[in-house]
Simulated assay, not measured.
Amino acid sequence: MEKILQEKYVQLENVNMTFFTKKGTFEALKDVNFSIREGEFISIIGHSGCGKSTVLNLIAGLLQPTNGNLFCAGREIAGPGPERAVVFQNHSLLPWLTCSENVYLAVERVFGATETKDQLKKRTQAAIELVGLAHAADKRPNEISGGMKQRVGIARALAMEPKVLLLDEPFGALDALTRAHLQDELMAIMAKSGCTAVMVTHDVDEAVLLSDRIVMMTNGPAATIGEILDVELARPRKRLELAEDGHYNHLRSEVLKFLYERHAKKAA
């Protein structure tokens, strides 16, 4: 029987976020409203300080909104949960553990109460293989490249079998070639896993290449949703072919136009 995907799998309703600091209050987000379909890949883009990571942290449950509501699969987001896994720009691997052991920690945390050690090891191995790191499973973080470390972080998140994968500029610290390679791998991984993804990025090409829709944020303070762009490009996507695709370049121009106009307003 074909699975019916939810149109409003993740929902943000009238979300406001104000931070209270020693210097006073700072209104980061105001009246943020949008929903994400199940299985959809969403990118959030905007200038620095527009609240992109704040939106991601709210969905992750790491922050609670000052006003408004957030839902995932029909349930209110009241805190972190294993159905929502986060991949940060800093991979945050424990240096004294191997790649496999770093992934196993997450697996044990989520499934340790209900599964045997053998089952947990199989889950770990499957996640390591999914990101193409079977050959490096027994290596420690200082023995592998930055790109491989980030793949371990993705494997750790996917090993939890999340319904929603949250990515906070996961390739921002990598060189251009490694970044391009991991973007291609992420597309393949997401096609296999089928989970919903939300990614924060500053990279226009990355947003257009990976996304089904791009959420463009206005400048802060009191940032909100400026525009949402549908990326109507067939999958699987091949970057070399898209480089000469007229519609791809049109979408890229639309994002650049939005960001340029916002920069001009900020400068004024």
Rank of each mutant, 00 (worst) to 15 (best):
residue 203 D to Q: 10
residue 108 E to R: 11
residue 166 L to R: 01
residue 209 L to K: 05
residue 129 E to K: 15
residue 227 E to Q: 08
residue 86 V to S: 00
residue 143 E to T: 02
residue 174 L to F: 05
residue 60 A to S: 11
residue 42 I to T: 12
residue 54 T to A: 06
residue 122 K to M: 08
residue 258 F to R: 06
residue 106 A to G: 04
residue 186 L to T: 14
residue 107 V to P: 02
residue 37 R to A: 14
residue 116 T to I: 00
residue 268 A to W: 04
residue 55 V to K: 01
residue 23 K to Y: 08
residue 161 E to A: 15
residue 133 L to Q: 04
residue 3 K to N: 05
residue 157 A to I: 02
residue 70 L to E: 04
residue 143 E to L: 04
residue 52 K to A: 06
residue 91 H to Y: 13
residue 263 H to S: 11
residue 40 E to R: 06
residue 260 Y to I: 13
residue 232 E to S: 01
residue 240 L to I: 10
residue 191 A to W: 01
residue 165 L to A: 10
residue 2 E to M: 09
residue 60 A to V: 09
residue 153 G to D: 12
residue 4 I to R: 10
residue 78 A to K: 14
residue 68 G to S: 10
residue 54 T to W: 03
residue 199 M to T: 04
residue 267 A to I: 09
residue 188 A to Q: 13
residue 169 E to C: 09
residue 69 N to Q: 14
residue 234 A to Y: 00
residue 225 I to V: 15
residue 217 M to C: 05
residue 151 R to Y: 01
residue 174 L to M: 05
residue 45 I to R: 12
residue 170 P to E: 00
residue 41 F to P: 04
residue 248 Y to D: 01
residue 160 M to G: 12
residue 11 Q to E: 15
residue 268 A to E: 13
residue 96 W to P: 12
residue 6 Q to C: 08
residue 96 W to Q: 11
residue 186 L to H: 13
residue 201 T to A: 13
residue 184 D to E: 15
residue 31 D to H: 04
residue 33 N to Q: 03
residue 55 V to E: 01
residue 142 N to G: 02
residue 10 V to I: 14
residue 231 V to C: 10
residue 228 I to K: 02
residue 112 G to T: 09
residue 92 S to K: 10
residue 152 V to Q: 01
residue 219 N to M: 05
residue 2 E to N: 08
residue 116 T to V: 01
residue 260 Y to C: 08
residue 168 D to F: 06
residue 14 N to V: 06
residue 229 L to N: 09
residue 41 F to E: 03
residue 190 M to N: 05
residue 221 P to E: 05
residue 109 R to W: 09
residue 74 G to V: 11
residue 64 Q to F: 01
residue 110 V to F: 06
residue 34 F to P: 08
residue 180 A to N: 08
residue 27 E to V: 05
residue 238 K to L: 07
residue 235 R to N: 02
residue 191 A to N: 04
residue 110 V to G: 05
residue 5 L to Q: 09
residue 52 K to N: 07
residue 259 L to T: 07
residue 175 D to E: 11
residue 185 E to Y: 09
residue 109 R to D: 11
residue 161 E to C: 15
residue 251 L to M: 05
residue 44 I to W: 07
residue 108 E to P: 03
residue 215 V to D: 08
residue 82 P to Q: 04
residue 76 E to W: 11
residue 53 S to D: 03
residue 180 A to T: 07
residue 173 A to F: 00
residue 161 E to K: 15
residue 86 V to A: 00
residue 15 V to H: 10
residue 258 F to M: 07
residue 15 V to L: 12
residue 91 H to I: 06
residue 3 K to L: 08
residue 30 K to P: 01
residue 229 L to V: 13
residue 234 A to L: 08
residue 195 C to Y: 01
residue 189 I to R: 02
residue 264 A to D: 08
residue 157 A to P: 00
residue 31 D to K: 05
residue 26 F to G: 02
residue 106 A to F: 05
residue 25 T to D: 12
residue 226 G to M: 03
residue 141 P to L: 07
residue 78 A to V: 14
residue 123 R to P: 03
residue 243 A to V: 13
residue 237 R to V: 09
residue 156 R to F: 14
residue 66 T to D: 04
residue 153 G to K: 10
residue 199 M to Y: 03
